[in-house]
Amino acid sequence: MRASDTIVVEDLTKRYRGGVQALAGISFTVREGEIYGLLGPNGAGKSTTVRILATLTRPDSGRAVVAGHDVLREPGQVRRKIGYVAQASGVDRWATGRENLLLQGHLERMPGRELRRRVDELLEQLGLQDAADRLVNTYSGGMRRRLDIAMGLVHRPAVLFLDEPTTGLDPESRALLWADLQRLRAEGSVTILLTTHYLEEADRLCDRLAIIDHGRVIVEGTPAGLKAELRGDRVTLEVEGNASQAVRALDGLPGVLEAVPNGTEVIARVSEGATAIPLLVTALERAGVAVSAVTLSRPSLDDVYLHYTGHRYRGEGEPEEASLAAGAARRA
């Protein structure tokens, strides 16, 4: 553990009553001042990890240190240093935004005068000053989310946990929230651990990220680094008929690094997209597989995910980028 590591997670396991294995030995470290992402589908163990780090749940085994304090041995010290914004909002709908912030600040042990100043400052920063004295019940989803984040920040925590911060937000509110988080990172005063099932969000916001599935880290790195590790281009071929038969036809062709079936598609990673496409299509037709659409793209986090898990990324609500692209190609 280095001095600059703000969060250290070592081999956490957790099995819920009822037998669900939520965590199967997850380990990662988050450095001071960075935004670190846990990316994975629903049920991968992201929320459980965050709940353990926020002292809300106890792991079955393993160790976790947050801002210099062990979450099991010194939960009280950890709570003073963290802000926790859960997936379920957790604000009081029958209180105003300001009242929510003031109560949160009191419970976070902030002295009164400083707290009132801080609340004004946060309301202004997050563009909530006009709505400050209205009941939260009247807020839009985006406003409520910004208030959630303000609640997490009111006591200037060293670490902020954001569990699925933009789930359920419209694209405009999501963009606003991303801008807020980017500004926070620029200020550099808080280390942020966020979970998301949006590839784009992880790509945009995170300095480093871990892709997790079935309760363990599959691969960790910077978004750019992870994508760079995958050489070549991605070719998505929509085929009529058996995708696994198509994969057999492509395996071993010169220039094909990897071919994976995905429903009615075959996703091939090739060293040089432009020259590979005619070869791929010819090989498939020779094997009796008709190709209805072809798209070429640079590797995305989706490909990183595919490469390490063997299956396509299916985040809830994620736009089906590949099939949209295929549709566009067909129309063209």
Binding site: R51, A54, T55, L56, G76, R79, R80, I82, Y84, A86, Q87, A88, S89, G90, V91, D92, R93, Q104, L107, E108, R109, M151
Partner: peptide, 13 residues
């Protein structure tokens, strides 16, 4: 149900 309890329990309250 609304997550208020989790938010409270993550503070030193």
């Amino acid at each position: 149900n609304e997550g208020v309890m989790s938010r409270l329990l993550a503070t030193p309250v």
